[in-house]
Design a protein around this nucleic acid. Structure first.
Length: 201
DNA sequence: CCTTTGATCATCT
DNA sequence: GATGATCAAAGGT
């Protein structure tokens, strides 16, 4: 429905729900793995979001988050995991959307090999670090731009039309500041989003 | 189903 | 020196 470059030219809070249903594909020597995004979180760079990595200004780690829209911001978490964000607009504002979960829609055999601990296929990319592992995203990919046609990773150029009732919102996960802001978005009736993380309304 | 705990280290204070 | 945008295994209910 919406052109990708145009979509990413908006604020993270607007971009986040519109990334739901978009397919993230990564081709590598092992083959292509593609994931349909089912859960995201917005991190705002306007100073209103103390949970954002950019809240205290640029550092060596977060500098790519201040880059142009479409940049992939990948950071190392809890001493062993990678998590991936898509940088939003305006350029330099430090806004991004964290990719939290998805459904593997292509390359499932490769994804299973990368995620041997997953007991069920819905667990392959359920969780931000599981998603990066299924897609083989690491710190080496930090700073790549998804809008660059030469990039081995890309988002499907058009987002699907979603029923408004399909998009749910709630608090973000795993943070200690701004815990009440409802800036997490996910697709309802989604087995790739943990039931315990779907607050009742 | 749920809760607890260990793993493991870059980053920032 | 403490924290953290996490995960998986283990044990309890």
């Amino acid at each position: 429905m919406v052109d990708l470059a145009e979509l990413l030219s908006r604020r993270a809070l607007d971009v986040a729900p519109q990334l739901l249903g978009v397919v993230f594909a990564h081709r590598s020597p092992e083959g292509v793995v593609a994931v349909r995004i089912t859960e995201v979180e917005a991190y705002s760079g306007d100073g209103s979001d103390p949970a954002a990595h950019t809240h205290r200004g640029p550092t060596p780690r977060n500098k790519v988050m201040f880059g142009p829209p479409g940049t992939l911001y990948v950071y190392f978490s809890y001493g062993m995991h990678w998590c991936a964000n898509v940088v939003c607009s305006p350029h330099g504002s430090g806004e991004a959307v964290l990719l939290r979960a998805g459904e593997v829609v292509d390359g499932i055999e490769v994804a299973r090999r990368r995620r041997p601990a997953a007991r069920r296929d819905v667990d392959l990319a359920r969780g931000p670090a599981r998603l990066t592992r299924a897609l083989a995203i690491t710190g080496a990919d930090n700073g790549r731009n998804l809008l660059d046609p030469r990039c081995t990773m890309h988002l499907s150029p058009r987002a699907p039309v979603l029923e408004k009732s399909q998009v749910r919102t709630g608090p973000r996960v795993g943070i200690s500041k701004a815990v009440d802001l409802p800036w997490r978005f996910w697709l309802d009736v989604e087995p790739t989003v943990s039931e315990s993380r779907k607050p009742r309304v």
